[in-house]
């Protein structure tokens, strides 16, 4: 049942990504300006400019350019960057690990802390504990990321000198960016966990387990938390786009490379193949993430599982 559903959804990705490719192509070519001005230098002639435009095929109709691009993509070739002058696939491959590292660690950090805080808030209902967690959640979800990043640099990197100000040299350079992004994520995870626990706690089978005389911790760890994990996993899958490309601001402040930075830089230089390639890749990742999230939800839903037992 779940298998058939998954295959159906998987097949849907093909037409959808084709439609997306058209949208992305149009968006990119709607941008005012072109990449050629980033290539010419003082002293080159207007004829050089025309020659360059022709060299990169930018003098062809949009229709032709699109088909050239999409047929390349079909063969797995993301094309060659115009301004950055190397295969787009190489550029993505170079930046992806940085994004995965930062996004993955930030997510792990916020999941763990968020889960704990969510459980604490749930377990300490109507006490100061709940208020504290709620306050923390509120703070985390309201502070602009770049502002937090700046303050972190000022405090931990400059005043205390514990971590480097910027760059991506070793693990120490990861700490502040991970904390900055993770802080915002904690709020989300804690909120979702708390609500999920409240909801699962109300389910009949939990009441039944209580009635069976199981201890509270057993119920919490054996039954409640596994169920509360479901929404967290779902968020992870749904947020894959954020993990890969959402760290632009933090990457900018900490001078870190990454997919988001690559995209923004290419966008500024109108490096069409790079913008198109990285947006398409992000869109694909998002679709697969959503798919996994949905399947996970379907597969792990306690009601569905209980029903199939």
């Amino acid at each position: 049942m779940i298998l058939k559903y998954s295959i159906q959804r998987l097949l849907m990705i093909i037409p959808v990504s084709l439609a997306i490719s058209v949208v992305i192509f149009l968006i990119v070519h709607l941008l005012p300006g072109d990449p050629i001005d980033n290539l010419i230098r003082v002293g080159s002639s207007p004829e050089d400019r025309i020659a360059l435009t022709a060299k990169y095929g930018l003098d062809q109709s949009l229709f032709e350019q699109y088909f050239l691009w999409i047929s390349q993509i079909m063969t797995g070739d993301f094309g060659q960057a115009i301004v950055l002058r190397r295969p787009v696939a190489d550029l993505i491959a170079q930046n992806l690990p940085y994004s995965l590292q930062l996004g993955g660690l930030a997510f792990l950090f916020s999941s763990i802390v968020g889960l704990i805080l969510g459980i604490v808030a749930w377990a300490s209902q109507k006490t100061w504990g709940e208020q504290f967690v709620k306050g923390f959640i509120l703070l985390g979800s309201t502070v602009p990321g770049f502002w937090l990043a700046l303050l972190m640099i000022l405090f931990f990197a400059v005043n205390l000198g514990w971590f480097p100000v910027s760059g991506a040299r070793d693990w120490t350079a990861l700490v502040l960016p991970v904390l900055t992004i993770g802080f915002g994520g904690i709020a989300l995870v804690a909120r979702v966990t708390r609500v999920a626990l409240l909801e699962v706690g109300r389910e009949d089978f939990i009441t039944l387990l209580h009635a069976k005389g199981l201890s509270r911790p057993t119920i919490l760890f054996r039954h409640l938390i596994p169920h509360a994990l479901l929404p967290v996993v779902t968020i992870l899958a749904l947020r894959i786009g954020w993990i890969l490309g959402g760290a632009v601001t933090v990457e900018f402040v900490f001078g870190r490379p990454g997919l988001g930075s690559l995209l923004i830089r290419a966008l500024g230089q109108r490096d069409y193949p790079v913008v198109q390639g990285s947006l398409l890749m992000l869109a694909l990742a998002v679709m697969i993430g959503t798919l996994i999230g949905d399947i996970a939800q379907a597969a792990m839903d306690p009601r569905i599982r209980e029903a199939t037992k």
Binding site: V158, P164, V165
Partner: peptide, 18 residues
């Protein structure tokens, strides 16, 4: 040679010995 896009970040790097 490091490329630090934000000049104030580069300034802080010098200050902190980076």
């Amino acid at each position: 040679f490091r490329e630090i896009p934000d000049q104030s970040t580069a300034f802080l790097e010098l200050k902190t010995g980076g």
